[in-house]
Simulated scan of single mutants.
Amino acid sequence: MMTSSSVLRWCSGTAAAVGALAATVVLTPSASAAVTITVAADGSGNFRSVQAAIDSIAANNGVPVTINIKPGTYRGVVTIPATKPHLTLAGAGGTAGQVVIVEGHASGQTKPGGGTYGTSGSASVFVNANDTTIRNLTMANDFNEGANNLDAEQAVAVNTSGDRVQLDNVRILGNQDTLLVNAPSTSAVRRLYVRNSYVEGDVDFIFGRGTMVFQNGTVHSLTRGSSSNNGYLTAAATDINNKFGFLFWGTTLTSNAPAKTVYLGRPWHPSGDVNARGQVLYRGVTMGAHIRNDPWTDMSGFSWKTARFAEYSSTGAGAVINANRPQMSASTATQYTPTAYLAGTDGWNPIR
């Protein structure tokens, strides 16, 4: 099939995948017609793997591309390069749990060819492109801490460094450092909007210097079997020049850990960066009994009191108000809304 705006070159599949089609999608910058590609592990789609579908899209594509992923488990790292914006990954199952993208790399694990993955390089899914949407699927890092003995066991499920990224009705599963809200430099602002989703982990499992709104949905803290410290929800590294870091809005905090054993967060200063002054606000959040009465703590010699941590109008057994829990004033709270966090300089507003 050929049109004036796009060229689709289709070739028949191999004998091992009779009926499947391998596709190369070439999109010119002036193209106007959206493109849909189907991925199915059983060979009934255009590709068997998510990465193969992404690789088929020409760099600097000028039209939206939707990759529909049929139910199944897809093992292997998925990378959306910065040169392929306007891409949607959509799980085609009835629930987010029916489509699973998973890998099991950890920071201290040796890579093929030598060296280690490092924290940011351990991700199962890398979202490097702007204007990416991922919906109705699960992204997981299933590195088994108990079966390994590594000095560095950070294992990222999702690393987002693109701007105007949306995660909608997704499940993000891991243990330490599950979701990295990233940015390519301290001066770059990268925005992530997560709606109606579920993320779980234990240590610093939502972290980074990017800007994020986590609206509705659930943040679940996994127990580490401790009677006093079962981890930290956040480790924000927001640059001091960025007013907005992480906003949790109308979200529910749950856990299988004992009462008063989980921290809301601690301040991450990458490489000792003194200008990393994490900004985190829990607003209108329902907090389970697992949240500590002193929910903020120091990290790597940096005091949590020099960060920008606050709560506003939260409820639940874990929403205690005391001297260790800074509360944002009502007048200040008018400046810290989802639209304010996401607007940037271009007025982006994905909220619906």
Rank of each mutant, 00 (worst) to 15 (best):
M212H: 10
T24Y: 07
V78F: 01
A330H: 06
I37S: 00
P184Y: 04
F309R: 00
G288E: 10
V189W: 01
F246Q: 03
V65H: 00
G62A: 09
A237M: 09
I54N: 05
T254V: 11
A323W: 11
L89T: 01
I54R: 03
M299P: 00
W348L: 01
G301W: 07
V39W: 06
G278A: 10
R164V: 01
N293D: 14
G201T: 11
T83R: 06
T119Y: 04
A16V: 07
T110K: 07
W268H: 09
F207I: 01
L342M: 05
D239Q: 14
V285S: 02
R352L: 10
L27V: 13
A34Y: 01
G43K: 05
D177N: 14
S4L: 12
E145A: 13
G231Q: 04
Q327I: 14
D204R: 03
T160R: 00
V165E: 02
S255C: 07
V280S: 07
D142I: 13
T14W: 08
T315M: 06
L192I: 07
T251D: 03
G108F: 02
T3V: 03
G272C: 09
P81M: 06
P258S: 11
V125L: 15
G45E: 08
Q51S: 11
G265V: 07
H220V: 06
V125Q: 09
T297V: 13
N324D: 15
P64L: 02
A155R: 08
I37L: 10
P270S: 09
V274Q: 11
T83L: 12
T234C: 14
G210W: 10
R266G: 04
V219I: 13
G301P: 02
I206P: 00
S197I: 12
S49A: 12
S221L: 04
R283P: 11
